[in-house]
Design a protein around this nucleic acid. Structure first.
Length: 314
DNA sequence: CATCAGGGCCCTG
DNA sequence: CAGGGCCCTGAT
């Protein structure tokens, strides 16, 4: 479906804000729901029962941040509420001063701030979309995840046309619940067919807006009540969708190998690594690991790092 | 060529 | 709490 421009405005994220590193993540598997350059980002979302297209253009600098936001849709949209939502998802108002103070003397993190100061932990997706992504990631490598995501989007997503781009919008829970498990299985998503359906049912009982105000324990309980969400997906959801800085409590084996190297540790035991990360970074540990992990991924993208390529073959 | 570990979660014992 | 089953990929 073709969308038209509804409004264009400028926002000022709290400085320092690094547009490039706060709008793209080289570790993510490729999805046809968004596109990036270093200065522009396009993506799709659902908002007030509408499909919308979003474009960000960097019009400022790290110390004087300006993001031009253009919204495409069919019908009118209330500007203020949508900008507030985007500010939440992209952390435009967040203050990382305490984190920067905490790592001032850290020999691994302090040096990379020269490049990454002003990077935020953004998440373009809402809870439902990210839930579907979490299920796509389970028990699958990047190749398989990408293939399943493509099949699902082509069959149940909506193709939006705006600003010369054609990008898919995720399916809605209502839409997917009308599809049979067998039909989903035909897309080679395996047992995840059941997870998509049951997670969609569970999601409809929740209120994402209210969940943002829950404390960690309450939020954790609510998320674990969703079928298909276990300890690993929980950390991702808490960190990305709900911006909890301390959402690092279970480390999968392959991540343990990476963090061990990044932190200069001998052990690759997930438990020991978690203890060390807690000791060094406390309640900022999810952010700290994100900074280290992004540094690694960007370096790998520019010039492949052998040991990392072996663990993470994208 | 066949086999089988690995990955994250649910469910049963 | 341990362990089987789900569904594929990729290493052996």
């Amino acid at each position: 479906m073709k969308l038209k421009q509804i409004f264009k405005t400028k926002v000022n994220p709290k400085a320092p804000y690094n547009f490039k590193y706060s709008t793209q993540n080289p570790s993510h598997f490729p999805t046809p729901t968004g596109e990036n350059t270093d200065t522009t980002m396009w993506f799709t979302m659902h908002w007030n029962k509408q499909h919308i297209g979003v474009r960000f253009v960097n019009r400022g600098s790290v110390t004087k941040p300006v993001v031009e936001v253009t919204i495409f849709a069919k019908k009118s949209i209330e500007e203020k509420a949508l900008i507030k939502e985007l500010a939440y998802r992209f952390e435009w108002g967040e203050d990382y001063t305490d984190f920067y103070n905490l790592i001032k003397k850290n020999n691994k993190l302090a040096p990379i701030l020269k490049i990454f100061r002003g990077m935020r932990l953004f998440c373009a997706e809402n809870l439902y979309d990210y839930l579907m992504i979490a299920i796509l990631l389970q028990n699958a490598n990047v190749k398989r995840t990408t293939q399943m995501a493509k099949a699902m989007l082509e069959n149940y997503g909506d193709l939006l046309e705006f600003d010369g781009k054609k990008l898919y919008c995720f399916w809605t829970p209502e839409k997917i619940l009308k599809v049979s498990e067998e039909e989903l299985r035909n897309l080679k998503v395996g047992y995840r067919a059941k997870s998509f359906l049951r997670a969609s049912q569970d999601y409809l009982k929740l209120n994402e807006e209210e969940m943002r105000h829950l404390n960690n324990e309450e939020l954790k309980k609510a998320l674990l009540s969703i079928y298909g969400v276990g300890p690993a997906s929980l950390d991702y959801l808490m960190r990305d969708v709900f911006h909890r800085r301390d959402a690092l409590n279970t480390i999968p084996p392959w991540e343990a190998k990476i963090y061990s190297k990044l932190l200069g540790m001998k052990s690759t035991d997930p438990k020991q690594i978690l203890e060390e990360v807690k000791k060094r970074f406390g309640d900022w540990r999810a952010v700290a690991i994100h900074y280290l992990f992004m540094d690694l991924n960007w370096k790998h993208k520019e010039k492949p790092i052998e040991w990392f390529g072996k663990i993470m073959p994208y």
